[in-house]
Design a protein around this nucleic acid. Structure first.
Length: 281
DNA sequence: TTAACTGTTGATAC
DNA sequence: AGTATCAACAGTTA
């Protein structure tokens, strides 16, 4: 999926496009992704925000639509002009709306539309009362890029587990926002071995790891996310830029940007893991 | 034909 | 209880 930078990019670009628009119709083109029975027709969108990897579309009715893109979800916005052309003619990937993988079509005022596309059907849209949202995130740690996540916080959490540091950083009960791409890059930047047991990291190693994690996520946000094969695109169908700046993810066999050693790939807890065997001893 | 995939949860076994 | 490994979700592509 979309990791934190991709979700944040969607939120930032969606907000000015849909705030103030009214939901006129919800067309469910596949029954699976839409959770909840609350009717949102007639509600006006008042805000768009993010928590962990969840998009929260706030309504004036006391409810919100939570959206999780999981692996292949997309939120695509189209106005009357775009729709008239069938899609985004100049975009990198989205040229047909609704498309083959459009699962939910929100028809908005001003002839605008918001499409939820999801090839693999893991994602969801969940209508919840605002009072119930906090319960949805019970047990989910703060975002890695949140100021409350400092080295002392992370060190104390990592001391409690012996799982490999990479898996600990991917665990949203420890910190939220990292996914497989950015965690591989963060550990390379921090020069930490992905297999190192979390509780073996010293405080200074945790400081390095956290600083690197914040740095790669913020760089991902700045570049508008990472796009491989068009699975993630922004709200207008455009690719991100981080894939051109990636440090190790998907780079197996290519020289390490620091020392030139070929990047290695192995499986860790079933996830492809990319690292430099020299820099990340 | 098989394996892999940017996420997450749950089952199972040690 | 903590940890490791699969499986599940489902579609597409190498």
């Amino acid at each position: 999926m979309p990791e934190l930078p991709e979700v944040e990019t969607v939120v930032r670009r969606l907000r000015p496009l849909v705030v103030g628009k009214q939901i006129l119709e919800v067309e469910k083109r596949h029954p699976k992704p839409w959770h909840g029975t609350v009717d949102v027709v007639g509600a006006v969108i008042t805000g768009v925000k993010r928590r962990a990897k969840v998009i929260i579309i706030e309504l004036d009715s006391g409810f919100s639509i939570l959206v999780h893109l999981k692996m292949t979800g997309q939120l695509i916005y189209a106005d009357a002009v775009t729709r008239a052309g069938g899609g985004h003619p100049t975009a990198d990937w989205i040229h047909e709306l609704p498309g083959k993988h459009t699962r939910v079509w929100l028809k908005l005022s001003d002839e605008a539309s918001l499409f939820f596309n999801d090839q693999r059907l893991f994602g969801w849209m969940r209508v919840m009362a605002n009072d119930d949202i906090a319960a949805e995130f019970v047990g989910i740690a703060p975002d890695v890029i949140d100021d409350v996540v400092d080295a002392e916080y992370l060190y104390s959490r990592l001391q409690k587990t012996g799982v490999p540091i990479k898996m600990a950083l991917l665990n949203p009960e420890i910190v939220a926002g990292l996914g497989n791409i950015y965690v591989c890059d963060a550990l390379h930047l921090a020069k930490i071995n992905p297999r190192l047991p979390a509780s073996d990291l010293s405080l200074s190693e945790v400081e390095r790891t956290l600083a690197a994690s914040k740095e790669v996520l913020n760089k991902g946000i700045k570049l508008g996310g990472t796009t491989f094969d068009g699975k993630y695109v922004d709200v207008s169908g455009f690719a991100g830029g981080y894939q051109n700046e990636v440090r190790v993810y998907g780079q197996n066999g290519l020289p390490c940007i620091v020392c030139g050693t070929p990047i290695d790939k192995f499986q860790l807890a079933g996830r492809g893991t990319y690292w430099c065997p020299v820099c990340q001893k």
